[in-house]
Design a protein around this nucleic acid. Sequence first.
DNA 1: ACATTAATGGCACTCGGTGCCGCAAGTGAA
DNA 2: TTCACTTGCGGCACCGAGTGCCATTAATGT
Lengths: 203, 203
Amino acid sequence: MPPVVTMGADGRRAGRRPATSAAELEHLALQIFAERGFEETTVDDIARAAGIGRRTFFRYFASKNDVPWGDFDGQLEVMRASLASAAAGEPTVAVLRRAILDFNTYPPAEGAWLRRRMTLILRTPALQAHSTLRYASWREVIAEFVGRRVGQSADALTPQAVAAAHLGVAVTAYEQWLLAEGTDLVAILDEALGLLATGFAAF
Amino acid sequence: MPPVVTMGADGRRAGRRPATSAAELEHLALQIFAERGFEETTVDDIARAAGIGRRTFFRYFASKNDVPWGDFDGQLEVMRASLASAAAGEPTVAVLRRAILDFNTYPPAEGAWLRRRMTLILRTPALQAHSTLRYASWREVIAEFVGRRVGQSADALTPQAVAAAHLGVAVTAYEQWLLAEGTDLVAILDEALGLLATGFAAF
DNA sequence: ACATTAATGGCACTCGGTGCCGCAAGTGAA
DNA sequence: TTCACTTGCGGCACCGAGTGCCATTAATGT
């Protein structure tokens, strides 16, 4: 039997309202991580600071490692749509390059937060490791697009290789960006992806 | 004060002898993983099966995740030496390609074990994630070589990008190899690395 | 008031991993 | 043989992440 959805006129559904939100929790947690470090901060610390129970924390995030990822999946859907709507005439790698640059273009106000988030993810071993699992869906989106373009299954060698190479290079660009304070992420990404398009045969 | 190393004529050092070896433990653990699954096998299970204490297990492996990696670091040193001894005239990517193929060329007898190991690593989320940390040193070896060749720091964009792209493509080749039973790993690796050398501009 | 729905959070438990420390089992030398 | 020394073993207690269970709380409409 389908659940009877009781809903108020203002769109509020029945039931107790969430005590906080994933975004709010993330914001708070990132602050504590910055102060005390990721490993040194326990889930209890975060929960206590947020005024919620430890158990409740795990209803907002599947794991402590998932905290710094924001709405990654949502952003991914935007990229998927962007790829799908590309003109058929435009070369595959060009579309890819543009989509990746878009995916990583943030409003200037968020620049500082992005740096914090990515420093955490790329320099904390536990998060570095965990990132692989999040990147998997990123690669899948790319592979599906390339597969469509070259008329192969997304699981085939070429789409998967293109996706993996682009991911590796994009992450490398992020690492370079973090190395120097005042640099432009998109410019570095563009340069790095350029290397990939031409191929490494020149070396 | 420097420790006085007392050592027998036959090369045996003083002190109690190890009850087992990392290789032996790995062999045993891999068998249990294959039967019961990685997540379903506790460290206690492995220790009990090996007749050692749980505490002792962690003297052989830094973590449960490190079990399936064999002598990865040792192999890496071989690759590093191989890269260092390459003729200066040979193109960088060609050297790289050959070194990677060598690195992944195993005696036929080990083929079945390799498949087991890699299936475990590439299809178990926890191990997939952990692999990133092991791959870091692999990338470093490549980046150092490329840096030397192009006259840049190993930390610079180009060496890092080349390393990351090669890693991504190599792992992809492994995944393709696992998809079909009778295939030749080295051939797939060669094909995949070929894509990278030419670049993706053709797509 | 009452049924319903959804979120909270406490409790107990499992498992990976670590620090501490006493003990076992080897060594060469007195 | 006995002793000092060295190295590996492993029990114990502890921490922290993550999960299943379930009673409780706070919101909804009838």
